[in-house]
Amino acid sequence: MIASRLDLGTRKFWRAVGREIDLDGEHAWLRAPMSGDARVRDGWLAAEASAYDGVVREDVPSAGLIADMRELDGPGFDTGHLRPEIRDFYEHTSDWRMEVWVAWSPVFWPAGELISRAFGRRLDQLALPMRPLDVAQGMDSRVAVIADAEGTQRAAGWLRTLRTTGDYVFSGCYSVRALPGTDRAGVHVAFPLESGNVQVFLRPDHGDDGSLWLRSPGERFGGNGAYVVAQDRGHTYASRAPIHETFHLYVDDEGVLRTDHTLSLWSAPAVRLHYKLERRADPPRDHKSHFA
């Protein structure tokens, strides 16, 4: 009872600070999966596939978060300038294994711990690791392709769990999406929540060394950045969130693919994560499908 009131109160807050939106019209760019239950996990996948009259497939060999990185090409960005390891990671994500390190700012750690206890671990969603030992043995990841009726990949579910406990850390929907009025597409990530979601629009850029930068700057409503969407009493509301993320994917001097991830609140870094990414010698093969 207390938990359900807490979740309802949270939706009421985002309604109060947000604006009403029309997901079938002007604000279709904010349409993204939501969870029908408080405990998220992977329960949203089938409903998202049904929106395309499609299917969720977990039997796709070498499944990737993005079917073809060239979908991101446009003025100022050319996939051909990226290191091939980076493109391989995004197009064949399930073939890669990750090790993770985490460091919280002392200022934000208490708030992060409170949110993790009150929401993340209970909802099995956005449960950011709080201590280095939480991720000492790494994360396991699973990629589920969301395909339409013709079999074309429209999005991908990336489900990440702690290797030690199997607890969910992130359950996200990844796709390529162009915002209204922008000159090129970016990476869109949605984290379903009960009757809502958190979304991040990331603008890609490449470095001179073939690295990839993904950034969610603090742009106006309708621009790149983070949003919270909530449904309440038959209406849908959206608000910009003061969350800014930066991902830097690069290959180090020893040929290892790495990622530096910084999450900031307003302009202050709150948590930094570092990923070491290694291609599996013998990638696993799942054999499951969930028909919508």
Rank of each mutant, 00 (worst) to 15 (best):
M1H: 12
G9D: 13
F13N: 02
R19D: 00
L23Q: 00
E26K: 08
L30V: 01
G36R: 09
A38I: 03
R41Q: 04
G43L: 11
S50D: 11
V55D: 09
V56P: 10
A63I: 01
L65I: 06
G74R: 02
F77M: 14
D78I: 11
T79G: 02
G80M: 13
H81Q: 09
P84R: 05
E85D: 13
Y90M: 15
E91R: 10
D95Y: 02
D95A: 04
W96C: 00
M98Q: 14
V102E: 00
A103W: 08
E113P: 04
E113V: 00
A118C: 14
G120I: 00
L126S: 14
L126F: 10
D134E: 12
D134V: 13
V135I: 12
Q137W: 03
A147Q: 10
D148F: 13
R154V: 04
A155S: 12
D167T: 05
V169M: 11
Y174K: 00
G181L: 12
D183I: 08
D183M: 08
R184M: 11
G186S: 06
H188D: 03
V189M: 11
V189F: 14
L193E: 11
G207Q: 15
L212V: 06
G222E: 08
G223H: 05
V228T: 04
Y237L: 00
A238R: 02
I243G: 04
E245H: 02
T246G: 04
F247E: 09
L249V: 08
V256G: 03
V256K: 07
T259K: 03
D260S: 10
R272T: 07
H274Q: 06
R280W: 13
A281W: 10
P283Y: 05
P283R: 03
H290C: 15
